[in-house]
Design a protein around this nucleic acid. Structure first.
Lengths: 264, 264
DNA sequence: TCATCTTTGTGCACGCGTTCACAAAGACAT
DNA sequence: ATGTCTTTGTGAACGCGTGCACAAAGATGA
């Protein structure tokens, strides 16, 4: 998960916990799939399994929205889809602008997940004049000088930043000044914004580093305690990652490098 | 933040809280920037500001790593960079494979954040035969039938999934069976994996939905209480978002369907 | 109508994470 | 040496999130 809300210490909106809000889209996705298969109702147990969460947690989450279930039966799929969509604000149209149409930006623009569920790409913006006018995902790229006008004319309140790190804060400032109050940041930088503006960040590098931490730990602890499960194959390999010849090459790491294997 | 660790209920590794681990990459980035500017030391206050966190939290985070600071002075930048890198396992080489080289996958492969800090793209894999052999980011795409062999030969323990939702679980199963024990998932699906395997997910659609929720809330509450701050412009606009005409139309697509290649 | 069975909704307890506030530690000047 | 000043490291309190376990609600069948 590339994640991380910034700012706004879980404002506990109108009683709905932040953690619950973060799971609603997950439930919605599972429910939509059921809806397409014309399944009329689901139990908390089934839906929880589909969403990958605990059933008690799911029931508690739904309890914040109201009592939409029927004891002995479960939840009405269609009704729940509607309620969650409404709660998330997906029953209305959300025009968004994306700034920075490089490799990542272009890929995101093409990504279907953006277009679905009420989100509409109102404009693609870049600072490279040679990009201007070129259509990406069917939408012509516009020049950054028009950013303020575009936001104003389209009533945009959500912006996506996919620029290089160096330009992110500057772009962010302009977006906020122009009226954007929610930002999804793909640039590897910490953005500082005034109160009232929400920033969520997606950082590939950070996600990988977190995985590496756990991977290293798995490699290190096994052998020590034996930690049930885990099909040795992976553990062994991770413990002695230099198995492959030329591949791993370097591995010069200073000193305190992984306790290398460590026989039981 | 596209986020969400799955599984593994915060195993509290060797005393380092999960929340702290998630922040270490942030500190590392800020420290690296300072290091490049040849700054010798930083106080917890300065570094916290750069990383966008509370200074007390930062000090407590570092306290889990040991006592690396000097009272009255601060932390030695170089030393801290090394310690955090080591703790995160970045002093060793981590070969990774990426499966699903569509729009998003290609963009990720080109993304510099992957190559840096010990991560090395060992292979790009796709199920579309017409993609095979074509170089992406300088690396020729390989066919998915060779997945197991590639993982074995390169000692890969971290995999990145950027396939369409429908293919994700299947790819995941193969990766895990081949020995991969950490997965970064960009497909909009819940992956189920055996114990011992870590999954982190990055879901653009979910992030946007969370932002929409807060945006809706901001628009709704103002007017009711007045809730200080917030430059009306955005609030007013969000309150009457249906400005655009047809737009929302279609609404058919199941869910986050990646346009990209790859049949099931 | 009544009994049984399924599934929700939630009270409660526990643990993690955050923040405050301060004592201890060391640098630095005199 | 000694005092002052800065900054760390952490004890303690608090709040959020999670999961258990169960009572209440309603469906279903006789």
């Amino acid at each position: 998960m590339a994640t991380g809300r910034t700012h706004r210490p879980a404002t506990r909106s109108r009683g709905i916990p932040e953690a619950t809000v973060a799971r609603l889209p997950l439930y919605l996705r599972a429910l939509t799939a059921l809806s397409e298969r014309s399944v009329p109702t689901v139990s908390s147990e089934e839906l929880a399994a589909a969403a990958g969460v605990n059933s008690a947690k799911l029931r508690k989450d739904f309890s914040y929205l109201g009592s939409y279930g029927t004891r002995g039966v479960g939840y009405d799929v269609e009704y729940l889809v509607y309620q969650i969509s409404r709660e998330l604000g997906l029953t209305q149209d959300w025009p968004i602008v994306m700034v920075g149409i490089g490799n990542l930006g272009a890929a995101l623009a093409n990504y279907g997940g953006f277009a679905s569920r009420g989100f509409r790409v109102a404009a693609l913006i870049d600072a490279d004049p040679s990009m201007v006018g070129k259509p990406v995902a069917g939408i012509p790229v516009q020049y950054i000088d028009d950013l303020e006008r575009i936001i104003e004319e389209n009533g945009v309140s959500i912006g996506v930043i996919a620029t290089p790190a160096g330009a992110a804060q500057q772009v962010c400032d302009r977006l906020v000044a122009a009226g954007v109050s929610s930002i999804l940041n793909f640039a590897p930088t910490v953005l500082s914004v005034p109160d009232g503006v929400d920033v969520r960040k997606v950082d590939l590098s950070i996600e990988l580093q977190i995985l590496a931490f756990h991977e290293q730990r798995k490699a290190g602890e096994d052998g020590a305690v034996g930690e049930a499960g885990l099909p040795s194959a992976a553990a062994v390999r991770a413990a002695a990652p230099a198995t492959a010849p030329a591949a791993t090459a370097g591995r010069k790491g200073p000193d305190g490098d992984v306790p290398a294997v460590m026989p039981a």
